[in-house]
């Protein structure tokens, strides 16, 4: 829990680690939108290759990034199975005509369209997890909090207290490990007085936590009061006229990276919606086999 500051960061030096956290945050957002819009396996492949290139550049072992999937793998498989089973594509005849098979059992079925849809969802989930995992492996939560505050800055126009949010994030990152440690100490103290936290049903367990939670709150409030005194003593007055020691500056590489990902998003959107009717974009959608809904079905 002490690692909340460095989070999951993989401590090596690389262009990805050094990149401006704001650029990384923006790229992450662009990347997520891109993945959501991707229509075909070929484009998933292109994005996966891009991601692989960034992973190699970051010098984080690819296996380390893949381990980010551990938490999500069960969910991904369950999603895949349900998508396949509940999807009957374009109906039995059309599916048979296109793919040559259609297995039915009870309310479920397995068909070509269903398998393709399941596969796309799997790709989407995997890519959606891997990108942000790489970001957390190369960026500290503190830097990320700074980036979020910067990103929210335009909201100041609408009188949203963006600075206060930033301060709250920073203090939360600072205090979470301390409070976590304290909770452990309180639990031990009450255990030493015979308290039991792992017996009985959920209500009993929740009740058993009261002797931990009350002192924890009391102490958190005391800490908050102390911290407020200390901040005020060091001339804090709500962030008015505050400057920063670390002025974030986008480097040329940050800008180029953002432009590259923006271009990738644009490319995916053009492929998907084909606004200008370019024929060549269809190459990237070749694997989108749509069963022809034949006359036999409609007629």
């Amino acid at each position: 829990m002490k690692d909340v500051v460095f989070g999951q960061i993989y401590p090596v030096d690389s262009p990805v680690h050094r990149a401006d956290p704001r650029a990384k945050l923006l790229i992450m957002i662009i990347y997520i939108v891109t993945v959501v819009f991707v229509p075909s396996f070929m484009l998933y492949g292109i994005i996966a290759l891009t991601l692989l290139a960034v992973i190699l550049m970051s010098r984080v072992p690819p296996l380390k990034v893949l381990s980010g999937l551990k938490a999500i793998i069960v969910l991904a498989i369950v999603t895949f199975i349900f998508t396949v089973l509940l999807n009957d594509g374009a109906g039995k005849e059309a599916e048979l005509a296109t793919f040559g098979f259609f297995v039915e059992f009870g309310p479920f079925c397995i068909c070509g369209s269903g398998l393709l849809a399941g596969g796309r969802i799997m790709c989407r989930i995997v890519l959606l997890i891997l990108g942000p995992t790489l970001i957390t492996l190369t960026t500290t939560p503190v830097d990320m909090a700074d980036a979020v505050e910067w990103l929210l800055a335009p909201l100041k126009l609408f009188r949203v207290p963006v600075h206060a949010f930033g301060m709250i994030m920073s203090i939360a990152l600072r205090m979470i490990p301390t409070l976590f440690e304290e909770a452990g100490r309180m639990m031990n103290a009450q255990k030493a007085r015979g308290a039991c936290f792992d017996h009985g049903n959920i209500f009993k367990r929740a009740g058993a936590l009261i002797p931990v939670l009350i002192p924890l709150f009391v102490s958190a409030f005391k800490r908050a009061g102390d911290l407020a005194d200390a901040m005020e003593s060091r001339c804090y007055n709500g962030g008015k006229g505050k400057t920063r020691m670390k002025v974030l500056r986008f480097s040329v590489w940050d800008v180029l990276a953002m432009l590259f990902f923006a271009a990738l998003l644009f490319f995916v959107l053009v492929c998907t919606y084909n606004w200008w009717g370019w024929g060549w974009t269809d190459i990237f959608k070749l694997d989108m086999i749509e069963p022809v809904v034949g006359r036999s079905v409609l007629g």
Binding site: N188, A189, R193, I210, P211
Partner: peptide
């Protein structure tokens, strides 16, 4: 735990009950 009592550092931080009687009676 019945036989070994432990007073932690800054033990006053573990007080939680409404009254002294209840708190001391917790053990």
């Amino acid at each position: 735990r019945e036989k070994v009592g432990m007073v932690f550092q800054y033990p006053e931080y573990q007080l939680f009950a409404d009254t002294v009687r209840q708190d001391v009676g917790f053990g």
